[in-house]
């Protein structure tokens, strides 16, 4: 338990320490979720065993505790994914506004199926199951967690072009 091995940069440990300070002293587990988010962000959008073990060591908790969390929440990727994550909301309200067509359009455009990343690793089209809470702007999608609403094919093309050219 004294094993403090980890592979984080000094900056990262500072950020984790900051997250930890939001919770009572003996509740380091509470810092898992937010820490994993920043660690994932720092690691091209996905987590691996080494990062999970490192966080466990850094927080002095069991590795399985971190792993349990990493596999429960849908925003964590345990395999490499494309750089930009696209989540098209396909839940009821968006579905009623033809979000399925938006998905097909993106699939065709990027030549991938939902759940896959593009060959050039630029995009990852997440199989989003949740409603993204922008129902009055349906159909909508998030790209890297920025909302784009009232989508049309043209709008989608423009957004993807801009990101691809970034």
């Amino acid at each position: 338990m004294t094993d403090a091995k980890h592979i984080f940069s000094e900056n990262m440990t500072k950020e984790i320490d900051l997250i930890r300070s939001k919770f009572p002293k003996d509740k380091s587990k509470s810092a898992i979720i937010e820490s994993l988010l920043i660690i994932q962000h720092d690691n091209n959008g996905f987590l691996n065993d080494e990062l999970i073990a490192s966080l466990a060591n850094y927080l002095s908790i069991q590795k399985i505790d971190v792993y349990e969390v990493a596999t429960f929440y849908s925003m964590f990727n345990l395999k490499p994914v494309g750089k930009n994550t696209i989540s098209v909301c396909t839940n009821v309200s968006c579905m009623l506004r033809n979000s399925d067509d938006i998905v097909s359009h993106i699939e065709k455009r990027l030549k991938i199926k939902i759940g896959e990343s593009t060959k050039d690793n630029k995009f990852y089209l997440k199989d989003e199951m949740e409603c993204l809470a922008a129902c009055n702007g349906a159909p909508m999608m998030q790209v890297n967690h920025i909302n784009y609403e009232n989508l049309t094919f043209e709008k989608v093309d423009k957004i993807l072009d801009e990101i691809a050219n970034d």
Binding site: Q62, I64, D65, Y67, E68, T71, F72, S74
Partner: peptide
């Protein structure tokens, strides 16, 4: 007192 088995996935 040592958690080794856990519940993963959802």
């Amino acid at each position: 007192g040592i958690k080794e088995l856990g519940m993963t996935g959802r």
